[in-house]
Every structure is written in structure tokens, then in C-alpha cells.
Amino acid sequence: MINVKELHKYFGKLEVLKGISEHIHPGEQVVIIGASGSGKSTFLRCLNLLEMPTSGQIIIDGEEITNGRHDVNQLRQKMGMVFQQFNLFPHYDTLGNITLAPIKLLHMSRAEADELGMHLLEKVGLTDKAHVYPAQLSGGQKQRVAIARALAMNPKIMLFDEPTSALDPEMVGEVLKVMADLAAEGMTMVIVSHEMGFAREVASRVFFMDGGIILEQGTPDAVFNHPQELRTQEFLARVRESK
């Protein structure tokens, strides 16, 4: 479903991604871990071309998106994205945030879109907040709305860029639960996260990124319990210490 070949990304002279080749299959939940600066977020953002790769190929659903002829907007409709900072639209209420894209892009009527929106709000447990503006939601609620908003375009793939890193600890659980539900439905997900517990439980595969490459990857059991690389072992040890 996502096929990446020799992906390189430079910011100016700095090489952030140093050749990534990987295949993510439909229905997989991949969690990307690694220290900050290892290129995790950049890799994720390359997948929907929020960052333009400097070289290499990305093939989504059989279509190459990096050859410059592909319709980026069409591609992004198939890939939902959830951000660390939520990025809800402050001038729309919760329902308006969710229905904006379906109304403008899928030409749904407002009634249809509202019905879809309410259905999605039910899924994330926020039907009572349909007509509340983002400023009045807690961090966890905002992120759940952001997930519902991304789902509104009925994407085949969901990308999560550190979705719980900006949350107060007591709100992390509610967001992870929504993500776990999504995983249970078989959504293809790529998640950059520091939540090792979540990665263990939900991920079908874990990528450990270091210095712009995927240094080690495998099942959660393999990566967390039997890491082969020294860097992986060091990273996991550091994470455990800080807990």
C-alpha cells in the first residue's frame, strides 16, 4: 500500500533522510520510534508530500506520487493526517471542522455532511461537543476531533505525527483508545509516537529510526524485547529510565 524506495530529504545542506526503503501493507499499523532529530516526522510528512522528498520514490496504492505528475490534493484525500498540535480550525465549531472537507471536496450537502460528522463524533465519543468551538475543548478532546476530521474524507491510510505529545498525561489514554479502535477496524496506520506501551499493544510492526534511516524494524516483540542494534538498545534503555 505504501512503497518507499531510496527516499532522501535534504533541508538545505542537511541530509535528514538518508535513503529509506520500506513497504507498508494494507491493514498494517506501523509505529515509528526514535530520538528527536532522527527523521521520524520528516519521513511521515513525506508520505503525503507535506515535505517534498529530495529524491527517491513513494508509491501509494500503486500510484507513484513522487514523479511530479500526480495530483497531490487527490492523494491527500486518501490519507488522513493527525498533528501533534491538533491544528483544529478555530473559527469553525467541532462539527464544522469535520464537515468542511466533505462539503468542499466531496460536494456533500450540509445535511449529509452533518450526519457523517455526528457519526464520526459518536465514534470518538464527543457527540455532546458538536457545536462547541475548539477554544473550549480540552487537549484530548481536540485531538479526538482532529481524528474525526481526518476520517471524514474516508481515507485509506491514517498518518499520526506524535498525536499525544502535546497532551497532559491524563488525556493521553482517551486519544490512544480512539486510535486503538481504529487499528482494530483494520485501518492502515503510520504513527510517530513516544508511547511505547501503545506501540507494544497496537503496532503490527515497529520502525526504529536513527540518523535518517530505519535502523531496525520488526514486530513489537522483536524490537522491544530483542533489539539487535546497539543504538536501539541504548534508546530503549533511555526511554525506560525516564519512565
Partner: peptide, 22 residues
């Protein structure tokens, strides 16, 4: 905030739509 543009674009809205609605 730059994240607003990214959020709009990530939904599949084009540059002009994102400018106009968001």
C-alpha cells in the same frame, strides 16, 4: 499558525481553498 495551512492541505483542500476557507 502554519499548522492551519498544513491541516487544510492534509485534508486535500488545494492552496486557494485553504486560503479562502481557513
Amino acid at each position: 499558525d502554519h499548522g492551519q495551512m498544513e491541516a487544510g492541505r492534509s485534508l486535500g483542500l488545494n492552496y486557494i481553498q485553504t486560503m479562502r476557507y481557513i
